[in-house]
């Protein structure tokens, strides 16, 4: 069985970020090799400024208290933890070009690549997840 987990992060809200990083850190802590491909709004999740202010879905803002009560780590904490556990981040070059972003806009140690970079990793990953 493959020891790889491939994740596509294509949405940029707070809930999306938790879905992506919880699975990624849990997988990495279970000795899986994990790569996340950040594309379109998903780039928010590793953007130096945006990751600190990700929005909740409209009408769900009341969950803020629930996050605090459950002692859930913040997204920047999860990002740091994921990288510490060896999760590899790939930012989509095409989306960055469209949005006028460069590597400097993102957290350290990301790789910038195209879809093929990710597909090559994902071809024998089980599972591949999309958020």
């Amino acid at each position: 069985m493959s020891n790889k987990v491939a994740i596509i992060a294509s949405n940029g809200g707070l809930f999306d970020a938790y879905k992506v990083f919880n699975i990624a850190t849990a997988a990495a802590a279970t000795d899986k090799e994990v790569q996340i491909f950040f594309t379109f709004e998903g780039l928010n999740l590793i953007h130096k400024q945006a990751m600190h202010a990700l929005e909740m879905p409209a009408g769900k803002e009341h969950f803020a208290q629930g996050f605090a009560d459950a002692n859930v780590p913040t997204i920047p904490q999860l990002v740091e933890m994921a990288q510490e556990l060896g999760v590899k981040f790939i930012a989509c070059q095409m989306t960055m070009d469209v949005m006028g972003l460069t590597s400097a806009d993102f957290v350290e140690d990301i790789e910038v690549g195209g879809a093929v970079t990710f597909l090559e990793f994902a071809k024998d990953a089980t599972p591949t997840l999309t958020f």
């Binding site: 919880n22 850190t25 802590a29 000795d31 002692n71 859930v72 780590p73 556990l85």
Partner: peptide, 14 residues
């Protein structure tokens, strides 16, 4: 104690 998923597993792994 007091930590939510995925922290217990991440800390245990470390």
């Amino acid at each position: 104690k007091g930590f939510a998923c995925p922290m217990p597993i991440v800390r245990t792994k470390k």
